[in-house]
Simulated assay, not measured.
Amino acid sequence: MDVSTTSRAARPAASCPIRPGEPCTLCQLDVTGPQDCPLVYLVMGDDELRDGLHQARLARPGTRRPRPARHAGAAHPSPSGC
């Protein structure tokens, strides 16, 4: 079997955590994606910058993630504790 003729599964395009809604464009020369991007590392390592990015995501329409559905068995306990 020739290795060059085998097909590889397509990898999903990584999205840029710094620019919500946009794909990772590999804007640094030696980067393979968000996982080794120095800008992502710096922003995610700084509490103030990470919080600012989170606030920007919340302010942008269409970038909120849907809340997970509650299960029927996960109801809050009754006030009486029974």
Rank of each mutant, 00 (worst) to 15 (best):
V3D: 00
V3K: 05
S4Y: 13
T5H: 05
T6C: 15
T6K: 14
S7I: 15
R8H: 08
R8Q: 12
R8W: 01
A10Y: 03
R11Q: 09
R11Y: 02
P12A: 04
P12E: 05
P12G: 07
P12C: 00
A13C: 08
A13E: 03
S15P: 08
C16S: 07
C16F: 10
C16R: 01
P17D: 00
P17W: 05
P17H: 04
P17A: 01
I18G: 14
I18H: 09
I18F: 01
P20T: 02
P20C: 09
E22P: 07
E22C: 07
E22F: 04
E22N: 00
P23E: 00
C24G: 14
C24Q: 09
C24T: 08
C24F: 10
L26H: 03
Q28L: 02
L29V: 02
L29N: 07
D30N: 14
D30L: 13
D30R: 13
V31C: 15
V31P: 11
T32I: 02
T32K: 03
P34D: 00
P34L: 02
Q35T: 05
D36A: 00
C37V: 11
C37G: 07
C37P: 06
C37M: 04
L39I: 04
Y41M: 07
L42C: 07
V43F: 11
V43E: 04
V43M: 12
M44L: 10
G45A: 10
D46W: 06
D46Y: 10
D47R: 03
E48F: 07
E48A: 14
E48T: 14
E48M: 01
L49A: 02
R50T: 06
R50G: 03
G52S: 12
L53V: 05
H54L: 10
H54I: 11
Q55C: 02
A56G: 08
R57K: 01
L58K: 10
A59E: 01
A59D: 08
A59F: 06
R60A: 05
R60Q: 09
P61H: 04
G62W: 13
T63L: 15
T63W: 08
R65M: 02
R65T: 01
P66L: 11
P66H: 02
P66I: 02
P68Q: 09
P68D: 13
A69L: 01
R70P: 04
R70A: 15
R70N: 12
H71A: 06
A72M: 14
A72D: 05
G73I: 13
A74S: 14
A74Y: 09
A74M: 12
A75K: 00
A75R: 11
